[in-house]
Nucleic acid binder design. Structure first.
Length: 130
RNA sequence: AAAGCAGGUCGGAUAGUCGCGGGGUAAUGCUUUACUCCGAGGAAAGUCCGAGCUCCAUAGGGCAGGGUGCUGGGUAACGCCCAGUGAGGGUGACCUCAAGGAAAGUGCCACAGAAAUUAUACCGCAAACCGGAGGUCAGAUGUCAGAGGUCGGUUUACCGGAACUAUGUAGGAAUCGCUGUUUGGAUUUUAUCGAGACUGAUGCUGACAUCUGAUCUCCGGUUUGUAAGGGUGAAAUGGUGCGGUAAGAGCGCACCAGCGGUCAGGUGACUGGCCGGCUAGGUAAACCCCACCUGGAGCAAGACCAAAUAGGGGAGAGAUGACGUUGCCCGCCGAUCUCCCGGGUUAGGUCGCUAGAGGUGUUAGGCAACUAACAUCCCAGAGAGAUGACUAUCGCCCCGGAAGGGGAACAGAACUCGGCUUACAGACCUGCUUUGCAU
């Protein structure tokens, strides 16, 4: 579907727009850039710089971020372009840590409603605990 | 069994759930859905070589530049691989080598060292001469002391003498002291005397002084010979031994190394034998010489399509236009319009893009690298860039008594191959070596 394609930022100009005009906030391992895209969908992109490590480590961090985003995507409000940037401290992050940290970051940004939070992440948290 | 050498293989497994990229089939219909299949490595890495492929350039040849450098083979090609040769290392299995030419020329050889290439002589060694000092030996003379011989006195003792104690003295000693002539002749004495070839005892010891000579040592100097030896140095003008020499030296000889020639073996690098002359420093990852190879850029190469935009060329049409003309036709110019062509740009798309100098197996050839034939298999193809997450069980390692807990390297395809290099927890297999133990 078109909606699936639109979930990802694909082009360099899209990233440049978010970086240039968007607002940012950060946690210890992640940085989030967000930009209201005037559309009805929310798209995400992921950036892992060379400071994080070699190609293997960067690949792993990016995949973990993508998987985390996939878990959380249903709760996120529409209408934003998001760019998650991994900081060098994220080099050896675990998957459960990635999910938790991204969740905190999105709540901090106000993209996840507080009411929804208790409803949907519940199974994921249960899974993490197990 | 331990230590080691060489080569090779692997790089957790299985199941389930959710998710991602691609191919195929079907449906829907031009974008999705369903099913199914596939989906990182031995180095995918570094991008160091060599190729394919693409575009550009290019008649041929040469120069310059770059690369390679023992031999033979393999290969599409290579700076790679295999088999050898040589040199070096290791007890050994085995390992390492940028391994053409220094007798074409030029350059360099720091420091140290006497000296680093037209070397030459600092020390040393040796010869000759000169000067000085010292030792030893011998001789001569003198003095002194002792000892001894001899002679005399003499009972041994003892006393005394002598140019005594040596270029043969004392002593002994064959033998000789004659012949002729004259004076008349003979004998004896002189003679415990003289000469005497020859022989020959003791012939000594110590001290001192002077002189002479020889020799040795040391010091200094001059001249000459020498390259054996010499704190050095990466490297010292072949090495070792014997002879030789004043001392030495390929000065001579033997062996070794090196050089040249020749013969034999080998495709060849090279090896072995014989002969010869008798010495030639190192450095070519310094220039250089020789032999061979060599156009450039790279998949963001490059090809095609689409849309938009600025605008070039060509063709046609062409006003109530300008010029020629009094005017018209006509000629020429020409705003504008239509079509065509080539080119450029890009948050577009498609191709290039994965069936290949491919993998596996068998057979044949080859010591091997590798090659050939046959059979069989299809094994990633993205584009902010898929190959992931979670759970369970088993296997491995560590901690722990157990329960249990923790850990698992180096590392991610980007046009494709052949190599090289570098990184890598651990596990396994094969062959071999050395040492120890047992039989």
């Amino acid at each position: 579907m078109k909606s699936k394609e639109d979930l990802r930022l694909r082009k360099n100009y899209q990233y440049q727009t978010v970086f240039k005009y968007g607002t940012s906030m950060a946690t210890r391992r992640l940085v989030l850039y967000m930009f209201a895209n005037q559309e009805n969908v929310t798209r995400a992109g992921f950036v892992v710089s060379k400071k994080v490590g070699n190609a293997v480590k960067r690949n792993r961090v990016k995949r973990l971020l993508k998987e985390s985003y996939r878990r959380l995507a249903g709760n996120i409000m529409n209408g934003y372009d998001l760019v998650f940037v991994a900081r060098p401290t994220a080099a050896n992050i675990q998957f459960s840590q990635a999910v938790e940290e991204m969740n905190r970051l999105l709540k901090k940004a106000g993209l996840i409603p507080v009411s929804h939070k208790s409803a949907k992440p519940a199974p994921q948290e249960a899974g993490e605990k197990e």
